[in-house]
Computed example of a mutant assay.
Amino acid sequence: MPDAAHRYRSADEDSARWQDFPRRPGDIVISTRSKSGTTWMQMICAVLVLRTPELPAPLTGLSPWLDWLAEPVEQVYARLAAQSHRRFIKTHTPLDGVPDDPRVHYLVVARHPLDMALSLHHQSANLDRARLAELTGQPVTPTGSRHRPSVEQSLVRWIEADPDPREELDSLPGVMWHLRDAWARRDRPNVHLVHYDDLRADLAGQMRRIAALLELEPPRPDLVEAATFEQMRSRADQLAPDAGGVLKDRRAFFRAGRSGQGSALLDEANRNRYRARAATLAPPDLLAWLHRDR
């Protein structure tokens, strides 16, 4: 793997699938952590590239998750090879795990880590784990009547956990690993960082910015409307990332999408604990951009 520094693997992902993927000039790679705006950015790219609010196919077909082991890699390659428009491809792999190609644009979306962790907590209850295991060829892990922690307990445990960031990318160390790597590349002309809160605050302005970065036409009002969180939630059957049927409720995937909820659920001591931990994992300039001094 000469053009990628690291291979990221989990029970349902393998970044090695990127190595033999035939890239094209202008390809768009959307690299995010889970529940950080991945599907939102896919939809933004879809309407900017295709110039229509009515997509010709489900979003997962137009913008496949290349690393996901639930679909044979040959099928993913074939679907992308058949596309004649500019391709926009999903990955949860950090940029040091995908080929570094100056002809390709890399979009990295960041979200406040506590909001991401809150969404992960709710998403966990919406997954059909037996179906996921079936698709990826993994053994089914029985859950029994295991006690599910409260949201607050889950957030505190997430703050305190200290796994290898390259082994558990959705941990706090893993989130910061992903973003720190992208932050170090942010001056490259083909690496673009987008903040989830900016999408919430000014979607039209952010879509104009993204279009300019990708050398696409600016969005019409109907394209911006199609990419609003509310419109996407109303079209969950077409837009939710559920090609394999692993979600119990597609509409619940678009649960709320608000910012600041994760921090609001913690008391002052645990908010301070989070801040102190984050300060050990990322540089001050990245944290100032990421946290927005909330």
Rank of each mutant, 00 (worst) to 15 (best):
L95A: 12
A211K: 02
P2K: 12
A282H: 09
K90C: 09
G37C: 04
T39F: 02
N190K: 02
R186H: 13
I159Q: 05
V224L: 10
D164N: 14
A288Q: 13
A226T: 07
R209K: 11
W40I: 06
R86S: 08
D202H: 06
K35F: 05
P283C: 14
E167C: 11
P284G: 11
D67S: 13
A264R: 11
L172S: 05
A269P: 01
L66V: 14
N270G: 10
E217R: 11
R233K: 15
T228E: 08
S34M: 13
A276S: 13
A279Q: 11
A243F: 14
D67A: 14
L127W: 06
S259K: 07
A288F: 01
L290K: 01
A4N: 08
D170K: 01
S171M: 09
M43A: 15
P284H: 10
R188S: 12
V175H: 05
A204W: 03
P99S: 07
L286Q: 07
W183N: 11
V156T: 13
V246W: 03
A269T: 13
W68Y: 15
A201E: 14
L135S: 07
R255K: 09
S63Y: 01
T141A: 14
N270L: 10
R220N: 09
R188H: 12
V47K: 06
V76C: 06
D27F: 12
R157A: 15
A82L: 04
I159E: 03
L290A: 07
A279P: 04
